[in-house]
Each structure stands twice: as C-alpha cells, then as structure tokens.
Design a binder for these strands. Structure first.
Lengths: 344, 344
DNA sequence: TTGTATGCGTTATCAG
DNA sequence: CTGATAACGCATACAA
C-alpha cells in the first residue's frame, strides 16, 4: 500500500479525510465541531472530502477525547404501556432541539435492574440522567455524585430532595380524587396499586387515599388494597379478587389507567355495570382513558410539560446556564362516566 | 501529588485499579474480560481493588480499543403506542441473555429521521441493527454494508431481500382478514391506513385488501382509502370522514389496532352501533384489542416470537456462529365481536 | 501467568 | 487560521 493511500477496506477516519483534503486532522476536527474557526476555503475542501469518503465520526473516540457525549440517559420503569411514552417523547423533543441525544433504558420496575442500567448509561458517558421517582438507595445518588453525573427525578415533586425533582404531588393528586369519590357517597373503597415497596409514586398515591378517608372519618382499615404489577390483565385479575371478597367495594381506585381499564373490562365480563354497580377510577389520563367504555374518571397528568421541563432542567445542569431545576406541576381531575354517585 | 497516589478527584481508571492492586493494566483488563486467563490469587486482588475504588469501566474507551460494543441498536417507528413494545421487549430479553445491550431510537415514521438515527447508532458502534420493514433507500443498505454493520429487517418477510427478514407476510395476513370480511357479506369496504409511501407494511396490507376484493369480483375502486398517522384520535377523525361520504361503508378495516380502537370510539360517539351498524377490524392484536368494546377482530401477530427470533438472527450475524436469519412467522385471525355478518 | 508497549479515532493545547 | 502532538481509557499482540 502506497503512502497517501486512503484506506479502502476500512471505514474512513478523520485521518483519511485529512489526507484526502490535504490538511491536518486538527483542521478536519475543527471543521466539524466549530466550523467558524476555520476559513471558508479549507472548510469546503474538507466538507467535500467528508462527503466523498462517506466519513462518519466515531462517537466513542470523540467521547473519549472530549469527555462529553451530548447524550442524556433516561431510565423508565416500563416501555410496555403508554404511561411514560408521552412524557418521554416530549423529553426527547426538547433534548433534540438542543442537539442532545436521548438514550433510553427500561428497568421493568426492578430496583436492581435500574441500578445496573444506571451504571451502564454512566459508563457510556451520559452527560446526565433522568430517573422516574426519587426514592432509591442513597448509594445510587452517591455513585452518581462521585461520577459527576447530574440527575433529575421526574414524576414526583419534593423540594427537599437531594436531587432536583420535576413533577407533581402524587399524594395530593390522589387525595383530591379520593375526596371526590367520597363526596359522591362512596364508603366501601378498594384500590389496585403497583407494589408500593420502593415505588414512591405508588406509595404516595396510596397515602393520598388513606388521608382522604381519615379526614372523612372512614377507618383506614376499610380500604381493601391489592398490589400487583401494572398491566391490563393484572388489573382484571385484581378486580376479580376484590369482587369475591366478603364486602364488595362500591368503587375501585386504580393506581393508573392501565389497571383501571383492565378492571373495567373484567367487571363487565363479570356482568357488572360500570358505573351503576361499580365505579372505577384511574391515574395518568393516557389515551385509553378516553376511549374506555365507560370513559375513565382519572387524574390528568401534564405528561408533555413534565417531559419538556425535565429536559430543560437537565440541560441546565449539564451546561453552565443556570435555570430552574425544581418544578411543580399541577394535576387536574378528569371526571368521566366511570365514576358515579353511590347510594346504598 | 506523590507517585503511587490513586487519583481521588477523578473517576477511577484501569490504571488506578492496577496501581492499587499492584499489577499491570493488562492484568486488570484480563480479569474483567477473560477471568479464566488469570490466576485466582491475582484475580481476587484485582477484584478487591475494583470494589474498593468503585471502578466502572469506560465504555467508550473499551469500544475504541476492542472495536466491539456488545450493543445492538433498534430503530422503531414509534414509542407512542404499544405496537412495537411487546416485540421489542422480547428482543431485548433475548439480547440480554447473550450479554448484549439494546439501544433504542424512534424515527416517528420519518424516513430522514430514521436515516439519521441509523448513522447515530452506527457511529456509536452498534454491532448490529434492527430495522422495522425492509423497503428503504438502497443507499442506506450500502452505507451499512460499507460500515460492516449487519442488519435484520423485522415485521416483514421477504426471502429475496438483500438483508435477512424476520417477520410475517403482511400482504397475506391482511388478505385473509379481508376474505373473512367479504365472506360475511361485506361489499362496501373502507380502510384507514398509515401513509403507504415508504412503509412496506402498510402498503402490503393495503394490497392484501385489494387482492381479496379482486378475487371476490369487487371493483378495486370501491375501496375507500384514508391515509393518516397512527393514533387513536387519528383513527376517530378518519372514521368521521368516512361516515360523511356519499356511500357509507359497512366495514372499516384499519391498518392497526390503535386506529381501529379510535374508529370504534368515534363510531359510538356518532351513535353507530358496532358491529350492528358498522364492523371494524384491526391489525396486531395488542392488549387494547381485547378490552375494546366491542372486542376487536384483528390479525394476531406473534410479537414476542418475532422479537426473539430477530435477536437470534442478529446475534448470529454479529458473532461467528451460523444460524437461520430468514424467518417467516405465521399470523392468525383473531375473530371477536367488532366484525359481524352484513346483510343489506 | 503476567507485563510491556502500541494503537484505537478524536479533541484540545500550544506553537507557528 | 492551521499544524504538530499529547492526552483520553482500554484491549491486545508480543515478549518474558
């Protein structure tokens, strides 16, 4: 192989481009990263070479040298349903507008898996991380801190948390819904929730129901609680269990819309009329809530705004520009047919 | 700073571990990558150092040196709904079992965005790529070939394609459903589909309907076609448009379950009884198909098997082990209430 | 079995 | 404005 040959059987590198354009590798690099720091003539020469050779920069080499990836990682509990889809979409869009790429991983609601994913994303050089929920082993935050990786916790709000939170008050949101439920005359309340262990969104929501009951003078023990994994089928199974108990609830408050829709489907299957025989509520207000029959009464969460604000917060943290990093969003009750008055 | 100091204010590197354990960096590297190539005593020493220092390997550096990332990328059209969720989940699980990580990106059904994502994933060093559908600019495949990155196209099957396909016959699947529809007496057929331009799954499915009509002696022109983006609301809008036409269809065959569910919801809103006044069919058989009311007649796609087989094919291609890379899966009709007999 | 030395493709520092 | 050249953190061929 003669000197000056541009390697033909290997994917082209910066050096190949430099040789082809007759400049140094430094110049090529500059052309790509700060085009204004190079005179137009050479720039054109270089860009032509880039096109000619079909050069694509090696991300890993770049990350290694620059210690920056323009990449932000997000770990969400599940991709199986649409709960996080909308928020994540907005998150990604906002990152994209700022030239940052999103890396997603899902933890299947498993703490250990999440920790593994965190390590993976960090070792891949993520400039920052989006996590869902705040409560987790302090070691995790210590690790992230040591590695100098900024984090934002979303889907929750806690001004006292060690890391910025962008989200809403799960406790208050569910409490408001429970108050509405109670005001409609319901006393025999049941709930289908995700495992509350290690899931602050779920446990806060449960706390919300209990608080509303207490304030209304209903004994906390009257609440039937079923913990299950999120899923349409799981919601159905849970509902069946509830309806075979001694005291059948007049309303089932579900931890999210997916469970609620599953519960409604099963209720109908059991010959129950929703909401005449049984009211059902959800949480999230994702698309299926609207098309459910009957349409689902639920808590509307501003998913898109949350995603966008979380991205902004994170971009602020990885960059130098300061900005708000603790953001509380409002939820609203979305009253639809699945919840009705109760009279004994 | 004294010689021998392990750097305290920086994330530890291989060299730090080596120094701490009193061995060479090569040994540490071996300990982590091929533990059996190092004697137990030193291995323990090294692992202890790793733990002590909280060392986490730098992925980018590793990729750069090893020219391998144990990472496979997947670009799916959307994460907004569950169409690809189940398949991707299985894909990821199978990769995980083989120590390979999945990197997901979504293209929002946009060709240019997809090409960008492909470049991104390749430049990140993905060892292989999963793409949805086969038909795309040949330049894309040329690029991938030049870069030496193996590809598998899923959700389609074409034994003659330049790249391995793992999927099902979209044409035949939809044709079978259309035949069933026609056998029930329907003649005024309409379809709500994704844009067929650059989407082989959608265009094949459309072709399937047309073929069945032709074989049944129904003029192709009788088919009302509405192209829209996938989404529940979009399905509703399309349905409304169809029902305000001169000749109202007796059945609406939708390109996927999401559109179908949206169509059903809108139909009910318009005071139509499904299926008495109007039949609706879907495609995919995702969870909402079951809980829809009425339950949705649709084409069942073996999503999980497809994901798993796609992973296997890809693993075979990046590794040396040979194996099947072209896999045809069967779809089945899933008849539920939303499709009924039609009599004029 | 372990160590030495080199290279992977880029960026960044520092001269020129 | 451009060019050498030294990192960046790790894997591996080769030597010991």
């Amino acid at each position: 192989m003669n000197i000056g040959d541009t390697n033909k059987d290997r994917t082209p590198t910066l050096a190949d481009v430099a040789r082809f354009a007759g400049v140094s590798t430094a110049t090529v690099s500059r052309c790509l990263n700060s085009p204004d720091r190079v005179i137009e003539e050479t720039r054109n020469k270089v860009l032509k070479a880039v096109r000619e050779l079909g050069y694509a920069p090696n991300f890993n080499a770049r990350a290694l040298a620059a210690k920056r990836t323009n990449t932000i990682g997000a770990i969400i509990p599940t991709m199986e349903n649409a709960i996080f889809a909308r928020g994540l979409q907005a998150f990604q869009e906002e990152l994209g507008r700022n030239g940052t790429t999103l890396l997603v991983a899902s933890s299947s609601y498993q703490t250990d898996l999440e920790e593994e994913q965190i390590r993976t994303l960090v070792s891949r050089g993520a400039d920052g991380l989006l996590l869902i929920g705040y409560r987790r082993d302090p070691k995790v935050y210590e690790f992230l801190h040591r590695q100098g990786v900024p984090v934002v916790a979303a889907w929750v709000f806690d001004p006292d948390a060690d890391v910025p939170t962008v989200g809403f008050d799960n406790f208050l949101a569910m409490k408001m819904l429970a108050e509405k439920v109670i005001s409609l005359g319901h006393r025999r309340i049941a709930t289908i929730t995700a495992a509350t262990q290690g899931n602050d969104r779920a446990s806060e929501r449960l706390r919300g129901i209990l608080a509303a009951m207490t304030e209304a003078g209903i004994p906390e023990n009257d609440l039937s609680i079923i913990e299950t994994t999120y899923g349409i089928d799981e919601g159905g199974v849970a509902l069946e269990k509830l309806m075979t108990q001694q005291i059948r609830p007049s309303v089932v408050m579900c931890g999210n819309d997916v469970l609620a829709v599953g519960a409604i489907a099963k209720a109908k299957e059991l010959g129950l009329n929703v909401p005449a025989d049984l009211s059902v509520t959800g949480f999230d207000d994702i698309e299926i809530a609207k098309i459910s029959s009957p349409p689902l009464t639920t808590v509307h969460v501003p998913h898109r705004r949350m995603g966008k604000e979380a991205a902004r917060a994170l971009l602020n943290m990885v960059g130098t520009t300061g900005g708000r990093t603790k953001i509380l969003l409002e939820t609203t009750l979305q009253i639809r047919e699945s919840l009705a008055q109760h009279t004994d």
